[in-house]
Design a protein around this nucleic acid. Structure first.
Length: 744
RNA sequence: GCGACCGUGGCGGAACUGGCAGACGCGCAGGAUUUAGGAUCCUGUGUCGAAAGACGUGAGGGUUCGAGUCCCUCCGGUCGCACCA
């Protein structure tokens, strides 16, 4: 009875589509429309009931015009910055990947292809500025726990401090640490190979070795660097820095176990209390100085690491060898030492995130061009909104090459345009944007597809958004959801939206496994609906999908149970001739079952427990079948609600049934049956009698029996007497309307 | 390695705040109908046992009158993160 808007769309920009187009040697602009038509046909055939009037396609200029508009808004608000940065380069895709698209150092789409580092000038969205809000808001969202956890981990907030070590020349080397309390144990310093100070701190006689090491690190792909066997490597710079706490000098090393992209790209190493530093110090024979003792009371000291009973990364301890801080707990020491160093300008508290800015540049063809024009005199000029869309030209040579620039950069006739500001000849940005940008705002477009003069209409958005119920795969738990939240926040801050979180409720559907592997397009083990629909009918097929397991958990796809669903529908069908329009007296028991079913189906649908909702409908139809078996007809009052409740599951079938029982109009417009608590209540229930926790009898009683009555009649039960006779009942537990447990 | 989720009949799976384990369906067995098969309908179907009953939710321990559910240890699986200082 509620107004519900369930839209659908197609997101066919991006590398998947482009690679496929390259494979079959057809232009994506030709391929996509026919594929969409095929999808649409199949979805309609399975009875997908969505609002086709508001469908959209992200490759449509009428859509990506507004994707470009979104980009302009980010640019306008200073959230789309250009940075020269080391990026993940997939030699197979021949393009840059977001960090999120690199899996264990391999390309997400080419599991056999290692991702390399490459330095390119890229456009980034400054999502890291929103890290705190993205994290905080998670608490307010009705999302599944696991998805929130994944987002929390991805944002990766940690609290600590930036401490300053100084070279003899006085150059400060800031390091980030979550454990400033251990600074007295920092016996050496490590810089990432890419650290900008490496050249400066390297002694003349060490230049060769350091240079060699850096070149090796630079060539190394991320697999060996990050995942490999984790055998520590490193090289000494020949110089020393001053530990701000002890005043002693400590050697400065270069090692690739320190990552440039996190913290300051430099660490203070505390080998006594950090496993990685410990391993490194052992290998290169560096000093290991213990500064934390297990607290006398604390048992939970980490036992990791061979030997030494060094409390690695544990907070349960007291400081030793730490000057005036000796005896302090680690936690107290953290604050005290940071404050003490801060007085001399050598420390400041700092919150660090693992989240990186979102690189949206793609050196590919099949995406929305980034609406920027570079002009020699005006610099970076955004394309005026009135000039949108910047159309993606239909070129034949869209295959990417090794150059690191988009195929569009080979088309001067396209990128040579006058500067919108001064009119001199300028140059379009030739990169296109990441597909994730298309999908990070599409939900805003759905209700507003009728507006061709704005991305989304404020009033329309206020009516329909944020999305009340959003369901997606777990693969979206990090990327898509994070990006969408970020874009929504930016638009909110700019005054375009009244809400800052796009999805009030999110649930991840489970994964369907077939032949032992996740069912997916890339694995090719998909089930094509056509054959099933031909053999069993669309309603049987879709209902079976809902019945085969819990929706949120997924499961194995196998054909074996599908006949059961077909039989169920056939049996409902067989009831129709027995439907009696006029029934004076309606069976009490069946009426009760009906109302219990109404309640169960409603709550199961809300909780997405489709399998148990269907089971409840089966039980109810069995109840009606037993009416027929006993010789009476099926009152229309009992049959019609069943047909209505079947409608979401078997839309074609229930529409036909509706007509057969003589109802006017469409079952899909019919009012959902109302639950009546009175009618659902049983007037007699079964209470189980246990003796010492074992079931020894059952009794039929009216609901609401008192404790004494219940115990008395339990004791009177013949079956129970046998076990109680001659013994003393020490205790009697009564759970209202459920059971009596006698302890003897 | 860290984190999250999960482990129940021959199979897919039910079981709200601890309260009859196995709903619903598949499969299987017997029966009805049929010349036969298929389809359909009825009955049965956790294990052991003739029965009474006992035993049963990955393994082991614990809390409780009572544990699939809560706690501890371990084993196995799925997913995510992974040298993040």
């Amino acid at each position: 009875g509620w107004d519900v808007f369930e839209p659908i769309g197609f997101d066919a920009f991006g590398i998947h589509s482009e690679n496929y187009a390259l494979n079959v040697n057809t232009h994506p602009a030709k391929l996509i429309p026919s594929n969409i038509a095929r999808f649409r046909e199949q979805l309609k055939r399975t009875g997908l009931m969505v609002n086709w009037d508001h469908q959209l396609s992200t490759t449509d200029p009428e859509y990506y015009r507004w994707t470009q508009w979104i980009f302009l808004k980010l640019f306008e608000s200073g959230n789309a910055v250009k940075k020269e940065a080391p990026v993940n380069w997939c030699p197979e895709c021949k393009t840059v990947l977001a960090n999120e698209q690199v899996i264990d150092g391999y390309c997400e789409r080419h599991p056999g292809t290692r991702v390399h580092q490459r330095h390119l000038s890229q456009r980034f969205f400054t999502i890291t500025r929103f890290a705190e809000r993205l994290l905080e808001n998670l608490k307010t969202l009705d999302w599944s726990e696991s998805t929130r956890t994944m987002q929390t981990n991805w944002i990766g907030r940690s609290e600590g401090a930036e401490l300053v070590f100084q070279t003899p020349a006085g150059t400060p080397i800031p390091v980030y640490t979550t454990r400033p309390d251990t600074v007295f144990g920092a016996t050496y310093l490590v810089l990432a190979p890419e650290h900008p100070l490496v050249d400066e701190v390297t002694a003349a006689e060490r230049q060769d070795d350091v240079g060699k090491y850096r070149r090796r690190a630079a060539q190394m792909d991320i697999v060996t660097r990050k995942v490999g066997d984790k055998e520590k490597t490193g090289v000494f710079t020949g110089t020393y820095a001053r530990n701000p706490a002890t005043g002693e000098t400590v050697p400065i090393w270069i090692a690739d176990y320190v990552l440039m992209e996190y913290g300051t790209g430099a660490i203070m190493a505390v080998p006594a209390h950090d496993e990685r530093d410990y391993e490194f110090a052992n290998k290169f024979e560096l000093e290991i100085r213990r500064v934390v003792e297990p607290a006398p009371s604390a048992e939970s000291v980490s036992q990791k690491g061979e030997a030494a009973d060094l409390p690695f990364i544990s907070w349960d301890g007291v400081l030793v060898n730490s000057g005036s801080f000796d005896g302090m707990s680690c936690r107290a020491g953290t604050g005290a030492i940071t404050a003490w160093l801060a007085e001399r300008g050598l420390a400041k508290a700092k919150v660090q995130y693992r989240l990186h800015d979102w690189c949206i540049s793609r050196q590919r063809y099949w995406g929305p061009p980034i609406p920027i024009i570079y002009c020699d005199s005006c610099g970076t000029v955004p394309v005026p909104e009135a000039d949108l869309p910047v159309l993606l030209p239909e070129i034949d040579d869209f295959r990417p090459d090794e150059s690191g620039v988009s195929p569009l950069a080979r088309h001067e006739e396209w990128y040579r345009v006058p500067c919108p500001t001064c009119g001199n000849l300028g140059r379009r940005e030739t990169d296109v944007s990441d597909t994730f940008l298309d999908s990070s705002w599409y939900f805003l477009r759905y209700p507003s597809t009728d507006f061709d003069d704005r991305a989304f209409d404020k009033e329309t958005s206020a009516k329909w958004l944020p999305v009340d119920s959003y369901i997606g795969g777990n693969e979206h738990a990090v990327l898509h959801l994070m990006y969408s939240r970020f874009i929504t926040m930016v638009l909110h801050d700019m005054g375009y939206l009244e809400f800052e979180e796009p999805f009030s409720r999110f649930r991840a559907h489970g994964t369907i496994v077939k032949d032992g592997a996740k069912m997916s397009k890339s694995r090719g083990n998909v089930v094509v609906p056509d054959d099933y629909i031909a053999q069993w009918g669309a309603d049987t097929f879709r209902m079976y999908l809902m019945f085969l397991g819990p929706y949120l958990e997924g499961g194995d796809f196998r054909d074996e149970g599908i006949a059961g669903i077909r039989r169920f529908l056939d049996r409902v069908w067989a009831l129709i001739p027995d439907v009696a329009a006029n029934s004076d007296e309606i069976d009490r028991q069946a009426t009760r079952k009906l109302h219990q079913t109404i309640e169960k189906v409603a709550s199961d649908l809300e909780g997405l427990h489709y399998n148990t909702a269907i089971a409840a409908l089966m039980e109810y139809s069995n109840e009606l079948r037993s009416l027929v078996a006993s010789g009476s007809g099926v009152p229309a009052e009992l049959m019609e609600p069943l047909i209505i409740m079947l409608a979401p599951f078997a839309p074609h079938f229930s529409a036909e049934c509706w007509e057969r029982v003589g109802k006017e109009g469409s079952v899909h417009d019919a009012t959902w049956p109302a639950f009546d608590e009175e009618l659902a209540r049983a007037d007699e229930i079964e209470v189980v009698v246990q003796v010492n926790g074992k079931v020894r009898g059952r009794m039929r009683v009216t609901p609401g029996l008192s404790r004494d009555e219940a115990v008395d009649s339990a004791l009177a039960d013949e079956g129970v007497k046998r076990f109680v006779e001659g013994k003393e009942v020490r205790k009697a537990i009564y759970v209202q309307d459920r059971l009596v447990n006698l302890v003897v």
